[in-house]
Nucleic acid binder design. Structure first.
Lengths: 197, 197, 197, 197
DNA sequence: TGTTAATCGAGACGGTACGTCAGGTCTTGCT
DNA sequence: AGCAAGACCTGACGTACCGTCTCGATTAACA
């Protein structure tokens, strides 16, 4: 029933994931088909159905492969001591990536799948989101130790407050996603909406 | 070529939109089909293709029909003078709606369409998001006048700071979407992450 | 459920049947596919599945179309008064047709389907075999009236005795199917195996 | 390239042939697959592809195995001196076997393969048909010697005249295949169609 | 009697065709 | 003219088998 993973051909696996990532970028998620992936990868359809339960999971694995092609060590955000500057730097990079046509389509596709598939969302959280989120939390924790953040602050809320607006603007297209917008969000999040003294 | 709108049968239009909204809720967005909508609505497929360019637009129109079934006047958020309490109240209602199984699937479907279709996103902004956003801005403007918000504050950024995290958590399923979470977000947004004095 | 025959497109029907007949002749029955027929006919697969339950029935209908393209009147075998000569003439024509590469493959295919599908066999008997068999019986009946055949003879048995060996040799390839063979069969059938007087 | 027959595992060979024969009887020829045979026989697919060139040959070998499980001596038809009675006896047994559900499907399958594969047909003639045909010829030769058959008679034609109609009726389903039919065929073949003085 | 090479079971692989579903277009007859 | 109905061509779905190809694990002839 469940196929034997030791017999799996690694070359086919990589070909499928690469083809999926490339195709979604070329034709968009709506026109991404299993047949298309198989053809591009030079692989039989059954090889995809044997190892992946759905199109979304293929795409997810493609992202996973990309992320694992890094050094493998934990992600670390820059820490110059200047929290605001560091956050703006990171968020600007995020904005740039989200605006990069090479990543825009694939990431929207993944986001869509997560929206509709709770199981996939859990895998995403565990393998892709959580490592990055831990890095974000760590940077904020460092600032907290330095007295730059409120002592009792819930760091997960803080992460959401900074990154949530940016991701939401990107996904929902509520407005142009610019570096300037990122900076304003950081400022507002750090200072709060209420007047200071 | 372009059909004559005066000949359009209103009953068919309503039947299609109702069927689309009901179906997406029952079978999910992935399995929502034009044929299914037509069959449920007791309508020929051509009637759908004649009046709507795509499945997403049908769904969007369905939301539009629902929103217009209100009184038609501008939306107004509660204003008791206590900004924090008012925001928490509104956000809790939002959370409840997002968690309501009757609206969850349809709204995720709409969000997905917006993610992938810039034109539809523009229509969404104009007809559904902007009226609501204006109400939010208005409530904040009132608070600003009362000195409860920083004078130079960009109200659009403020709206994003409050609603962005909630919407993002819902769409991306980064964690449970609870009333408590909403309250924490409001508090953090108002106070900011940096320590106060 | 059952499609409405009045809406059926006659052009598609003819294209499918022609394509099926041509293809089976070119690639053989084993490699005859619904997809191939559809492609050759310039027709969607669904159009075939809508109107025909199986590959075999398509082929049968193709034969039916060919047979109906004749004058429509009942078949008549030659009757010169010389029974033996007439039978040899007809049987030689049959042998020639069975050896004709244009008909060999398609007819073997039909025979195979009949072998495995009782329902199809019944349709074959009624629409293709029976008209021809009636003509054969009629020729024998004429001979019987002329005193050239035994008075109590079962004409169906007689038909089988003459045509059965030929068809069997063709289908089972028990030996070369020649005009000479046909003549010997006719002679043996007319005279019988036992010595005369 | 060509596998070494001395290494061949006899148990696997028998398992494959038995499985093939049983399966064709259970699921019919159309649904008989190499994978199915291999699974039923508890054998790898390659073992089948190594030793047999095609599905038809497997089936043919299965029949060969069955026929060789007899005593191995030449087949002999009963010879009581009464040719007509002996032929009717033998033909009735044939009819019974052809009507036996245990042999019907497998034999139709083999017949089909022979119809479409000339090479297999040659093997069939040599190993299965010819021994039986020789026995038939021998019985007729004996009758000929006894003056019960015409002296110059071609015995192969005679065999075809007697068995051809029966086999044809079975394969082509031109009518019910009964003992009575067999008897009528024998009578007609012996006496001939023409009136006897 | 241990060595070694072919056969074996298992099953992944690149393919082809299956029979079904839905997309979007077109035609027919009714309102 | 708009409409319900639905046939049509197209293309993708997910499945079943094809025939080829590895993989250890026997297993039988030879050293």
């Amino acid at each position: 029933m469940t196929p034997n993973p030791t017999r799996r051909r690694e070359a086919s696996r990589r070909a499928v994931l690469t083809a999926a990532f490339d195709l979604v970028q070329e034709v968009g998620y709506a026109k991404l088909t299993i047949e298309g992936i198989a053809a591009r990868a030079g692989v039989g359809k059954q090889t995809i159905y044997r190892w992946w339960p759905s199109k979304g999971v293929v795409l997810f694995d493609a992202f996973l492969m990309l992320s694992e092609s890094g050094d493998g060590g934990p992600v670390v955000l820059p820490d110059t001591g200047d929290l605001r500057a560091d956050l703006i730097l990171v968020l600007r990079a995020t904005v740039e990536e989200l605006n990069d046509p090479r990543y825009d389509q694939p990431m929207r596709a993944l986001a869509t799948e997560i929206t509709h598939d709770a199981e996939l969302a859990a895998a995403y959280r565990e393998h892709l989101d959580e490592p990055m989120r831990e890095a974000k939390r760590e940077r904020l924790r460092s600032a907290q130790r330095a007295g730059q953040l409120a002592p009792g602050l819930d760091l997960d809320i803080a992460v959401d407050l900074i990154w949530g607006p940016v991701l939401n603007r990107w996904l929902q297209r509520t407005g142009p996603l610019t570096a300037d917008y990122a900076e304003r969000v950081v400022t507002a999040a750090l200072d709060g909406l209420r007047p200071r003294s």
